[in-house]
């Protein structure tokens, strides 16, 4: 695979590479801020194109780098290959009606499931490292960190309490 990048005056930056099988992928970061991705199958003359906002491009990037993105909630897995292949997953959830009004302490999240709530996003405000006395409200988006198994337990035991 050969990656080549060119700066096109007035347009932006182009990244192009050819896969081992001969397909070509080209990405353009245009000056207007949108990102265009072209793919050209080997032996084909006309490329197909998709135009993305920076946000959409980042999500595509997440998928391509191997992070799992689920339908309603997102999760990112980080692997530290230097640390005995340590894998940590960060997952977001929306707080359902059932646990509205309860605190992190009430739910015994850490001792029951092993995961830690590292942030809560409520409307336009973010609370980083919420204290155990933090009270959940409906539609809070919580960011939870843990191992995959711990997160499964969290989904089973806390989210459907």
């Amino acid at each position: 695979m050969v990656l080549r990048s060119v700066n096109l005056p007035g347009v932006g930056t182009k990244y192009e590479f050819e896969t081992d099988k001969g397909d070509i992928v080209a990405i353009f970061f245009t000056k207007t801020g949108t990102i265009q991705m072209y793919t050209l199958q080997q032996g084909c003359n006309t490329p197909s194109a998709a135009e993305m906002s920076p946000m959409e491009a980042r999500r595509l990037g997440n998928i391509l780098t191997g992070a799992i993105i689920e339908a309603e909630a997102e999760s990112v897995e980080i692997a530290f290959s230097a640390l005995a292949d340590l894998r940590i997953t960060i997952h977001t959830y929306l707080i359902p009606k059932e646990i509205t009004g309860k605190t992190i302490e009430d739910l015994q999240i850490r001792s029951k499931t092993g995961v830690t709530v590292i942030a809560v996003s409520r409307k336009d405000k973010n609370i980083i490292n919420p204290p155990p006395s933090f009270v959940f409200e409906t539609n809070d988006a919580v960011v939870v960190i843990g191992e995959t198994d711990q997160l499964k337990r969290f989904e089973r035991e806390v989210m459907v309490d």
Partner: peptide, 24 residues
């Protein structure tokens, strides 16, 4: 020229690069 290359999604064509340098 640049707007039409971007909007009509022609940036990948070999001719697009020629056109861009022509503008320069």
């Amino acid at each position: 020229t640049i707007t039409s290359l971007v909007e009509n999604r022609k940036l990948m064509m070999r001719e697009a690069e020629t056109v861009i340098w022509l503008m320069v």
